[in-house]
Design a protein around this nucleic acid. Structure first.
Lengths: 201, 201
DNA sequence: CTTCACATGTAACTAGTTACATGATTTA
DNA sequence: TAAATCATGTAACTAGTTACATGTGAAG
């Protein structure tokens, strides 16, 4: 599958990055849906160079710190586009250790189950709040527009930030999509947890 | 982490299973949140036997087909309970190749993006419909109640799934939780896709 | 008699994590 | 001047997938 290969090519499509920069990118919004550690990224970059999909130039930072700035080649661009346009079938499994524990809820006391549930709810709420904050700071215009329109539907888990204010040709569209999708995912998780909390009270 | 270890112990907590049975279980509902191939399961079972967490007896099926039926040991039960009661922190990344492609949407034409989006929507809708169908066949009474229909006990039989799922002591609770959570996940995905489809029309 | 499901394993490989290892630059 | 961040790599290990390999049993 080599998804990391395409993740790196996709990042390099718009600008050159060092291995460290790529590692940093995976700590930003796209890290909600794909990421890798530097120990996986450096060997992959080496491989992509060997395959002729990326190139690098060495740049000096300060006195003597060398960093390698990678750029995508024409061949790399072609392979990226072929992958990106290809629909894939859904994974049968989307792993979630918490839900695995819930499947085995009969191994727990009601108190233990409730503690797990509340812990998960607290964590998911915190993550949702963090994402909403990112959204407001990165896309303040759209966030404001939505707040002015007042179409919040809390009972269905649709926050104001879930509607689409962007046009197709907007360089932030990808960013906007992953942020709203991550928020929708967390909102759905929070809603489900809240709906079932009564089981333990 | 060894999550597969606990997944297997959790399955064996209620009844004995062969390696083949465990493989089959991962193709059922719990497979929405955890799974493994038989080539990973057989070595793991071997390891669990070596560690004294499970035991097996050999059973003959028909004339000479041998199968190993595994049971959990007291030590296995203890390790399972310790894992199950332990809250874990959220994974920073929940991998989703489709969303990675959406982050790189600027590499696609509007037509290509729309095709991907529609393909994903169709697949997610189909999965949601499948899960709803499973839910209705496995938990018919509760499904009807949610649809706003009346439930009179006299008109229904006495199957295990016929009793109200929303009580802590119900042997189907785990099953109910994973099904409703999987449906919520797919519904949220479908909603998000529908809300953003207008970007491509 | 053929196909599908049952049943168990290993080999080779790919993907991903944790730990080891080193050094430069910036900021408090 | 100490700590955090920038910067790059390798080693050892764990997790997971695909392919190889074999055979039984049931049902049509």
């Amino acid at each position: 599958m080599r998804v990391l290969k395409y993740a790196i090519l996709g990042l390099l499509y718009r600008q050159e990055y060092s291995g460290y920069d790529i590692t940093s990118q995976f700590k930003q919004e796209i890290g909600q849906f794909w990421s890798a550690k530097h120990s996986q990224i450096y060997p992959e970059l080496r491989k992509l160079v060997d395959e002729g999909l990326v190139e690098f130039r060495t740049q000096i930072q300060g006195e003597k710190l060398e960093k390698k700035m990678y750029t995508i080649t024409e061949q790399g661009r072609q392979e990226l586009l072929a992958w990106a346009a290809q629909p894939e079938s859904l994974p049968e499994t989307e792993k979630d250790e918490f839900m695995l524990k819930m499947y085995f809820i009969h191994t727990l006391s009601p108190e233990q189950a409730r503690a797990l549930f509340e812990d998960q709810l607290q964590q998911r709420r915190a993550k949702l709040a963090y994402l909403q904050q990112r959204y407001e700071s990165l896309m303040p215009v759209f966030a404001k527009e939505e707040n002015g329109e007042k179409h919040t539907q809390a009972t269905h888990g649709q926050t104001a930030s879930d509607t689409a204010p962007l046009a197709f040709h907007n360089p932030n569209l990808g960013h906007y999509l992953v942020l709203t999708k991550a928020m929708a995912r967390e909102q759905s998780y929070v809603d489900w947890l809240e709906r079932h909390m009564k089981l333990f009270v």
